[in-house]
């Protein structure tokens, strides 16, 4: 667990088709945007090296996935070993917001993570650049309702972003990286420690100050 060690962090982006998963990844990794990214089929990933906190170098491996539900069953092939899961919705599409819970549940079923109770999730509402008139009415209320009640009341960090105008993308991924790193260290500790009775002790949460988004 030396901080010098180069760490690979696996991040999975989930959410309904068309919410902007590919765009978020592309904006973060390559700083570019297009309206015309093709619908993702199967899965693909990009990697980016970043430095967080105390000069720790990590490599983020960001997995972009297909949004149509029937393709979820493939997740079992690549969710394995994930360190963080990003749940995305489109701020102009209420259905995509309502589906966050099932994306989370599906992820937990298929990834078989060791700590489903406190596995790090983060919520991203994308497309805030769009005209307010198009946005989900009383979004804040609905969002709180979902994060507090349906997503288990764990106060997942929430970011509102625009992949198009590059708003909040960088900061969201910074938080993602921190959360993923914690999870990775937890996993590493668990695998080192055969007798994992101090599993519960390491229940360190990222402080739920909902880094950076001010919502």
């Amino acid at each position: 667990m030396s901080s010098r060690k180069k760490t690979l962090l696996k991040v999975i982006i989930l959410g309904d088709s068309g919410v902007g998963k590919t765009s978020l990844m592309q904006q973060f990794v390559n700083n570019k945007f297009s309206h015309q990214y093709k619908a993702t089929i199967g899965a693909d990933f990009l990697t980016k090296e970043i430095t967080i906190d105390n000069n720790k170098q990590v490599t983020l491996q960001i997995w972009d996935t297909a949004g149509q539900e029937r393709f979820q069953s493939l997740g079992v092939a690549f969710y394995r070993g994930a360190d963080c899961c990003v749940l995305c919705f489109d701020v102009t599409n209420e259905k995509s917001l309502n589906n966050l819970t099932s994306w989370k549940d599906e992820f937990l079923v298929q990834s078989n993570v060791s700590n489903p109770q406190d596995f790090p999730f983060i919520v991203i509402g994308n497309k805030i650049d769009v005209d307010d008139s198009k946005k989900i009415p009383s979004l804040q209320k609905k969002l709180n309702n979902i994060t507090n009640n349906q997503l288990g009341g764990l106060n997942y960090p929430v970011f509102e972003t625009s992949a198009k105008d590059s708003i909040n993308v960088e900061s969201a991924f910074e938080v993602i990286a921190k959360m993923a790193l914690q999870q990775e260290e937890l996993n590493a500790a668990n695998s080192n420690d055969v007798n994992d009775d101090y599993n519960d002790a390491i229940n360190i949460h990222l402080d739920s100050e909902s880094g950076g988004c001010g919502c």
Partner: peptide, 16 residues
């Protein structure tokens, strides 16, 4: 839903 799905995908099919 289906119409929306189709239109969303049509808008990003082979636009090059």
């Amino acid at each position: 839903d289906q119409k929306f799905r189709i239109e969303k995908d049509i808008n990003r099919t082979d636009r090059n």
